[in-house]
Structure formats: structure tokens, C-alpha cells
Amino acid sequence: MIKVVDVVKRYGAVKVVDGVSLTIPKGKITSLIGPNGAGKSTLLSIISRLLARDSGSVYIDGKELAQWGSKDLSRKISILRQSNHIDLKLTIRELVSFGRFPYCQGNLSEEDWGIVDRALEYLQLTEIQDKYLHQLSGGQRQRAYLAMVIAQDTDYVFLDEPLNNLDMQHAVEIMQILRSLVRELGKTVVLVIHDINIASCYSDYIVALQDGQVVGEGCGEEIMEESLLKKIYKLDFCVGQINNQRVCVYYN
């Protein structure tokens, strides 16, 4: 379980994250939604120790972030950001093997390579494992990064806009992978996401942010509510039920 208590982050005079407190349930998919500038990515970066906060606490399995050693933390949480996407000439297999760094400092044992192989297989990358990252399509590349995270084998997986630039087919494919990470491998997944219909259909828990503050949290049905969405996004929403899932239309 992750507990965030009263976290504040300022850029100059602007409070980007303004006293956020929340609890992220273990073994679930949690989505952070909200308009641009709501502080979603900043909050995710703070929880995953990439960014220092000005005040407040973050507890991961009951232990404050500052109390964790960096090596132990890298076996506990992993984070993928859009800006991670690099232009080094590396193969998928090399990238995925980096996921074992927290365990072996670069000298992979046979067991480590076995874990790399299984991660590749899990994301159906075995056949193209020797291709270079820059030769891949967007969906394949995202899967390669996810395979690295699986090889890193952390309880918590944080993803900043993992569906960016993906078409519908690949977006759904990634979400299904995330769901299986939770159901089959027992991971806890936290992601920042813009498509609220996807968030509604795939998340167990949704946190809505606006101007650095939490303005709503709960399961999909609690968040997919016309007045709340209108307040957050300043658009007229029409929420309906299709196949037992709440979806909304906001195009007018």
C-alpha cells in the first residue's frame, strides 16, 4: 500500500501539487486523471522519488521514501516516463536486461537471464528480441519498456501516460497487459492517463486531480459522474452505461 500525506510541490509561487493526501490500494490498477497542469505527472514523479517534494510524506509499504535505500527501492518500485524514451542504439533484449540491474549490478547470472527470457516471452517479444529499439513501432517499443519493468520485478509499477501516441488497438493491448500484471503477477499499477473512458473501463481505482488538489477518488462509477467531470474538465459530459461499463461522450 502507498500512502501519500499532505504532499506539496511548488515551482516558484505556483503550487503544482497542493496538499495531496491519498491511499493507493495494493494489487489494483489506479489511474490518475485530470486536465493538463493538474499535477498528475508531478505527483507520480514525487511518489516514485524522481522529484523532490517541498513538504509532506510518501509511505511505501509503511516506510517513508527517505528511509528507503536506493537499491532496495529500485527492487520495490519502477517508473516509466515518456521522457525515458531514448535514442540509444540498443536491442530489446539489452533493454530488458537492464531491468536486472538492481539485483546484479550488470553481471547477469543464468537466473537473471531466465527472468529476462520470461519477461520477453510474457510480452511476446521473443521473436524480435534482437531488433533495435528505433526499428520498432510505438506499440512494440512500449511493450519492450514494459518487459524491462517486468524483469525489474517490482511490487509497484508507475507509468506516466503509457498510451501516448498509441492507436486504439495498441492502447487496449497495453491496458490488457497492465491488467494481467495485476491479476496474474500480483503487481500494483499506478498510471497517469488522459483517456477517461479507458481509465473507467480498466482501473479499479481512479483519482481525479485539478489544480494540484484531489477533487475526487473512488471506483469508476463514482468518478464517471457528469457533474464531477464537468467541474474538472469544463466540458458538458454525457455518461452512459455500455456492456456494464461507464463511458462518457464529451464531443460537441
Binding site: 517508473i79 525515458n84 531514448i86 540509444l88 549490478q105 550488470g106
Partner: peptide, 21 residues
């Protein structure tokens, strides 16, 4: 340090994620 240099070359956030100093 070869392996560490490659990971550092992937950027600071990437390196921190993997527990690299």
C-alpha cells in the same frame, strides 16, 4: 563501469529508476 555508463546514458530518471547512483 561499462554497464553503469550505458544506463547513465539513458538519462537521469532512467538511472534512478534502476537504483543507479
Amino acid at each position: 563501469f561499462a554497464h553503469q555508463f550505458t544506463i547513465a546514458g539513458m538519462g537521469e530518471e532512467f538511472a534512478i529508476n534502476l537504483g543507479l547512483n
